[in-house]
């Protein structure tokens, strides 16, 4: 259940979005990936979930290579990706969006159980099951996207800016929920965030990228106490 990334480089045409990035996330850890706009955070997650092709380097999950595999296969090995921004299908009902989380799974009993669990976790979704997802508020959509990922019972959860456009209180709630879920379900979480302070608070390790390069990585508390990093990258 370990995620390792080794000398990973990714190009978008002529742009090198990630340049020889390496890090390891131990089982059950929360890793916060921090960096300014355009740092390459989204590219990193998209590469790990199979949406984007790597140029060079390796990445393994549970000891198996993940680069070059398709997203529809990686999700079957436990990697769930909640992508940046519009991560629910607006044209579908809340119920159908949730159903997507378990659509590939054979164990339908456990899908039903997992669905029950996330609905208890996010009661607002329960009240809105029949509504189309485009009627949801930003926070509710983010809950829905996370709920869908949880129904797939991920071993590795990749979250891209779950706080995007949300009020500070809602962000705090979502982060707290994530932290509790990790305790209970034991998944490994890679959390991409602009919101460095809140992310490092719940994270075990931090990974700071700038313009595609790894600037620093290590214990989250060490990073957030480093005055130089704070001034240059963490913004507080």
């Amino acid at each position: 259940m370990t995620l390792t990334v080794n000398n990973l480089s990714v190009d978008h045409g002529a742009i090198r979005a990630l340049n020889e990035i390496s890090f390891t996330v131990a089982p059950g850890q929360i890793a916060a990936v921090i960096g300014a706009n355009g740092a390459g955070k989204t590219t990193l997650l998209r590469t790990l979930s199979g949406l984007t092709h790597a140029t060079t380097g390796q990445a393994t999950w549970e000891g198996k290579d993940i680069l070059g595999k398709k997203p529809e296969n990686l999700v079957r090995s436990g990697i769930a990706h909640v992508s940046e921004g519009k991560s629910v299908i607006a044209e579908l009902s809340v119920k159908d969006n949730l159903a997507l989380g378990g659509i590939w799974r054979k164990d339908k009993k456990d899908v039903a159980l997992a669905t029950q669990e996330v609905l208890e976790l996010f009661p607002r979704l329960q009240e809105r099951l029949g509504q189309s997802a485009d009627t949801l508020s930003g926070g509710e959509r983010q809950m829905l996207a996370i709920a869908r990922a949880l129904i797939s019972r991920p071993g590795l959860l990749l979250l891209d800016e779950p706080s995007l456009g949300l009020a500070p209180l809602v962000v705090a709630q979502i982060f707290q929920t994530l932290s509790q879920l990790r305790e209970r379900l034991g998944f490994t979480l890679v959390l991409v965030e602009q919101n460095a302070m809140s992310a490092l608070k719940i994270a075990d390790i931090g990974i700071i990228i700038n313009l595609g390069r790894l600037v620093a990585s290590g214990k989250a508390s060490d990073l957030s106490n480093d005055p130089a990093l704070r001034a240059a990258y963490l913004g507080y």
Binding site: S49, L51, K70, P71, E72, V75, R76, A80, H81, S83, K86, S87, V88, I89, A90, E91, L92, D96, A99, L100, G101, I103, W104, R105, R148, S152
Partner: peptide, 23 residues
């Protein structure tokens, strides 16, 4: 669930793939 796969793939192929659907 075939119908849901058809609808999801039509509206949001990327989310469909991330949901394990062979688009």
């Amino acid at each position: 669930s075939l119908g849901l796969s058809l609808r999801a793939s039509a509206f949001a192929p990327e989310i469909a793939r991330l949901s394990g659907i062979r688009v």
